[in-house]
Design a binder for these strands. Structure first.
Lengths: 219, 219, 219, 219
DNA sequence: CATGAATGAGCGTTCATTCAT
DNA sequence: CATGAATGAACGCTCATTCAT
């Protein structure tokens, strides 16, 4: 019940909000949104039950806050790559894959939550945030495909959505089947971060190989 | 409240169970398991609230019933292909992809539910059922990869789990982003089954192309 | 679930009723009336759930049937002793105590149920049946006390109700504390009927000793 | 629904808990534990339905709270008498009988509840609390019997459990047959407290007389 | 007198939220 | 911005009973 770190009044409001948000993120990823009660979250975060409503307005708005917070960084990364004029289409594709993979692996809890929200589509604010990000992915990927096609390094008739589905789908499947992956490949004694490293290495190679086929580019 | 089709007393018990199960499946897929109350399900199915406990024991056991029911067919299909000696590895891969794709597209509601359960991992009965199916996929795919490798038509060092993740992930992503796919490709005026047909055609080609790369086979 | 003895149609209706009633008696004594569901009783008796309503009308009426059935014998015994002209008051008191003690010890389940009903006083039919029996006890005891007083073997001013309360209370307390009695007297390895025998012997002596004091008679 | 006394906000939490507990005690004594719903209790206490879970955790734990609360005083009284070195065995027996009688008469509702719980033996926490108290009675009574035997004022071979059964049983029977006692002795126009006074006077004399016989002491 | 299916009412409990301080 | 107390609504589930056969 008593948590020294957060009971003193030196801690800033934004820190406390962030702390609650991270606690909620973990619980939502583990138990699901509906099954995580505000009491669970308040207890786990070491704050008063009524604080959640006062800080965020409601449980639902807290979830929306989490999505706003987590998606900001992703949108920024995508936009920067979109505006980058220095890289070749080939390099951009590889960076695009790499960055997506790293975003998922570094925020696994959130991506589990996002996956469920994508399926259920309950909260319109969240739906719109996710749609925005998806459109960002699509815009960026389409831009660089067109660029590559103009430079005759990518083949024509690339199905943007299918390609993106393969990228996000493959990563997502491994995210939710991490333990099976470890079990199947007899790497169950690996540390969490070692397993993530292995996943990153194998996935990045796997995806780049697939995208070579999809885009038809030559190294 | 009143449903003509099921208010006559000709209907058998198993029909009624099946009807309730299908109604629940739709609701679970739309609103999620937690958010679908047994009252919702009973109302939607046009049966008394107490029937759910009467027929299935509990809400949770009804969910398990649904998984048992839906997975039986899938397991059978996988086993038949596993035992098939007549087909070449190449043919088997194509049938494997095709059958998986058709299973998902013909039971989209269920696959949405399964996706969420895969993420949340709450019910151990369901976890085990899904694990069994996954192991079936892996066993079958591994068998045919080895067969293809022995016949020197597939390349060595195929990552079974990554390949399966790409198959299931790509299909799953399109399942949950169907509307975006239609929107992006300007096919929003298509009928449901026409869109499914389009999805099937594009996905089957896409996946076969990718697996050609992964497995390294030549037509 | 399947009980050969009662599944053939040779068994008489009254036997079946009696069988259900005995099963219910055991359950009521063990779990209490409210906590014993008609499903429990039907399952334990190996009969169809709906039979209870058809045989007895309702769960409550079944309970009333049980009280009617069990109290008939008690009332008869009391009346016979009341009408007995051959015995001395002294003998009658001893027989009265003996018979009560034996009734309780041979129908322990029922006396537990009766005790609870006496406290709760929920069903008026049962209340009246119990009142009738109590009045029978009081009438009999009063008659023999007066007879003993007339013959100058019992003292004056005997409090009838207090005397009966001591008789029924002492026996009842031992009924519900049988296990503590065995534990305290280090007789826990005794068989059920051996313990009952011991209880009978000790209780009959104890009560006769007390009643000697209460009534003031001399052997 | 509206209770003036408890709708002002001066009342403390512990007062409210106590108030709910007393209301529940009355209902349990009148209708029985199973038949008293938390809605009944909440309505009767003039509090919100959810308060029962909020304060006590559950209906069952509320019952346990009641037993804890009520038994504390009894245990204390027994312990004090056990440790008292100033009184003679004779005086101790009389005080023991007196105190027990007063405890029952001043908490009649609770003793009805306890009687039912003694018969049904459903809740292990409560069973243990009751066992503890019974052992306390037995320890105290045994001590003073031995003391009296050593001083040659009590006879040998006193059956502790039978003697206690007579004490508790006689009082309990009168508790549950109070109205019959009044009716039989033509005291139905007596006030509640006047009847209790009468009961106390008659019972205390009755029990002391019996215990004289049981213990064999001379005044 | 027999039965499997069905039902309305009500159960104890939990929930996100609000209110007085 | 903080908090313990409080609450209305709704939850999954069980119950004794009834109905059509």
């Amino acid at each position: 019940m008593f948590s020294f770190a957060y009971s003193n009044n030196i801690m800033q409001v934004s820190d406390k909000k962030k702390h609650i948000l991270e606690t909620a993120e973990n619980l939502f990823a583990t138990k699901g949104y509906d099954a995580s009660t505000v009491r669970d979250i308040a207890d786990a975060a070491g704050v008063n039950l009524a604080m959640i409503s006062y800080y965020f307005g409601s449980k639902e708005k807290m979830m929306e806050s989490l999505f706003h917070e987590r998606m900001r960084a992703a949108k920024l990364q995508v936009e920067q790559l979109l505006n980058n004029k220095a890289l070749t289409p080939f390099e951009k594709v590889e960076i695009f894959l790499d960055e997506y993979l790293n975003r998922v692996l570094s925020k696994q809890c959130f991506h589990r939550i996002m996956l469920v929200e994508q399926v259920m589509q309950k909260n319109t604010v969240i739906i719109n945030l996710m749609k925005e990000l998806k459109l960002g992915y699509a815009a960026l990927f389409m831009q660089l495909v067109k660029e590559g096609q103009k430079k005759k390094v990518f083949k024509k008739n690339v199905d943007i959505v299918l390609a993106l589905a393969t990228m996000t789908g493959t990563v997502t499947q491994l995210l939710i089947n991490k333990n099976y992956y470890a079990e199947f490949n007899k790497k169950m004694n690996l540390q969490e971060n070692e397993l993530n490293k292995l996943l990153y290495n194998n996935l990045t190679a796997h995806l780049k190989n697939i995208f070579k086929t999809i885009l038809g580019y030559e190294q």
